[in-house]
Design a protein around this nucleic acid. Structure first.
Lengths: 151, 151
DNA sequence: TATTGTTATACTCTATAACTATA
DNA sequence: TATAGTTATAGAGTATAACAATA
């Protein structure tokens, strides 16, 4: 039940029943789930999940150790290993030794990774515009502001 | 890395780095994750996870089959089995044969389930007030309205 | 033929514990 | 002693396939 399209193509309506609408956390969770599902559905062609995409965005800012990356992505260091493995395998990222700390790696975006990121960002922007088309630009900005204060 | 409190009690700051703030889906996902974590953290005393709580809320409205319940909770029917098993084991719910469809069960809230629900709702309301204390009542209502349009 | 509930199974995501090599 | 990265492992959560009983 990960998305609206079932195997035979009929559209499964995902509603939030009225008794749950009084529970703000439930609305938030369901909106988040729907947005994430739509996003990953449309990004599936590029083999990137949202976590990979997030990592690429952060690395564009400059090379980072796995621990730093994990802290920014809310991902445990043991989980980061596989994530970086995958990005390295696809050639979007490379591990380099940290010049000042021989325990650590610096994860760097490769040239190919920059291309992947640019392409992914284009798709992601399209998807976001689609998902948030129910809101005006002003409302979307308002939503971001309100959510930002919850974190 | 499920919550802000680490084993030794120091508080892990969960921030959203600026490059990710431009990605609305990321903000939404992180807000949702934080709210869910806080909620389940505080509800852990009552042994209810958010899905159980959601089920009890829906059953207050009247008995439902597992399929109906699953459709309202966005939970697959194979996953519903264990969820109902747990609620039945704790005595909050009972399976009764559907009078008009001998394939189906009707899941009913027991008297004890009503007590559990009332107690859980009290805690949940407190938790929500705490979580959303960064927003005024009006802003919180606005957030619900905006999120509702995304679903 | 289709649907409800069920089981077995597998896959993803994530965290804990323990290790190594450094600091 | 503490930290970065790693592995093994185990626990959630969820989905697919197949089945029995019933519609």
């Amino acid at each position: 039940m990960t998305d609206e399209l079932k195997e035979d193509g009929y559209e499964e309506k995902r509603i939030v029943p009225e008794p749950l609408m009084r529970w703000t956390g439930a609305i938030l969770g369901r909106a988040s789930q729907k947005v994430r599902d739509s996003f990953e559905n449309r990004m599936s062609g590029s083999c990137l999940k949202s976590r990979h995409y997030g990592a690429l965005i952060l690395l564009e800012d400059g090379a980072k150790t796995q621990i730093e990356l994990g802290r920014l992505l809310w991902i445990d260091r043991t989980t980061m290993v596989a994530l970086v493995d995958e990005l390295e395998k696809s050639g979007d990222v490379k591990r380099e030794r940290h010049p000042e700390d021989r325990r650590a790696y610096l994860i760097q975006l490769t040239e190919q990774g920059q291309v992947t990121l640019a392409r992914a960002r284009q798709i992601a922007d399209e998807v976001e515009d689609e998902i948030f088309s129910a809101l005006s630009d002003q409302e979307r900005e308002q939503l971001r502001e309100l959510l930002g204060r919850l974190i």
